[in-house]
């Protein structure tokens, strides 16, 4: 939703970045205010996922130019864990499996790292148990998942739901969902979308990265950006998604 007196959470200006010496981003500009939902669409290889990984601080990518300001501060000064504690969350396209670490242990360590950074008291096992049981409801997840190793043996849908549980626990101000719809059947897509909608409010913002229009039926964006060749080449309202769905991406580059 577009709200009055919204504050700018993210401001990206002329961002260029490379991986292994290959330039991937070639001047990205984006501004996200509190309350807003943005969608970034575009063909494969356009730089969408790279952009999300750079925001989260993946060590394989090098920022070669431009600025990223997050809540008025230079995001690039921060290590990935600081970005996370400051309220930037990335839901992974391919969440990793970590055998041997239980989901509950992982979530509690993560939760307390964030709380400590924000000056909140850390939660003991009991208090965390209460909290996590509430958060599981966001995506209708069975508590038995807490005792399993992180994402190990989870189906594609369960992994994506687990990402949203992590998001709910960490209470970010800016969430980036990288191809969260990939590998989801329609029921899982609805559950995940409802979870995301439930967590969004006037004080936070969401960037949804997707290839398809389908997800945007459930998470309705205020803005849609089309990325192509490492740049945002077009910005519009939610109606742009339908046009992209019917016409594809080619007409944009041909014009």
């Amino acid at each position: 939703m577009i709200v009055e007196d919204a504050i700018t959470l993210l401001s990206v200006q002329d961002l260029t970045a490379s991986v292994d010496g290959t330039q991937i981003l070639k001047g990205v500009n984006l501004e996200v205010k509190s309350g807003e939902i943005h969608a970034i669409m575009g063909p494969n290889g356009s730089g969408k996922s790279t952009f999300s990984k750079i925001l989260a601080g993946h060590p394989d990518y090098t920022v070669t130019g431009g600025t990223i300001t997050f809540k008025g501060q230079n995001l690039l000064d921060w290590e990935p864990e600081i970005r996370a504690r400051e309220g930037l969350f990335l839901a992974f396209q391919y969440p990793l499996e970590i055998p041997g670490v239980t989901n509950s242990e992982f979530l509690r360590i993560s939760c307390n790292a964030v709380r400590k950074h924000r000056g909140l008291p850390e939660l003991d096992l009991l208090d965390f148990g209460d909290l996590i049981n509430e958060k599981l409801k966001v995506v209708d997840m069975n508590p038995s998942f807490l005792q399993r190793s992180v994402n190990e043996g989870f189906s594609g849908g369960e992994k994506k739901r687990n990402e949203i549980v992590q998001m709910a626990v960490m209470e970010p101000v800016l969430s980036i969902l990288d191809e969260t719809d990939s590998g989801l059947d329609i029921d899982a897509l609805k559950i995940v979308s409802q979870g995301v909608n439930q967590l969004s409010n006037a004080h936070n913002a969401t960037i949804v990265i997707t290839h398809y229009q389908r997800l945007l039926n459930y998470i309705v964006p205020d803005f849609i950006h089309v990325m192509e060749g490492g740049k945002i080449i077009l910005t519009g309202g939610k109606e742009l998604a339908l046009e992209l769905e019917s016409r594809g991406y080619d007409w944009l580059t041909e014009e």
Partner: peptide, 15 residues
């Protein structure tokens, strides 16, 4: 695994 480490860091966990 670097990707596993990054995954944990992106959840606020120090290296």
């Amino acid at each position: 695994d670097r990707e596993e480490q990054f995954y944990l860091q992106s959840r606020g966990i120090d290296p």
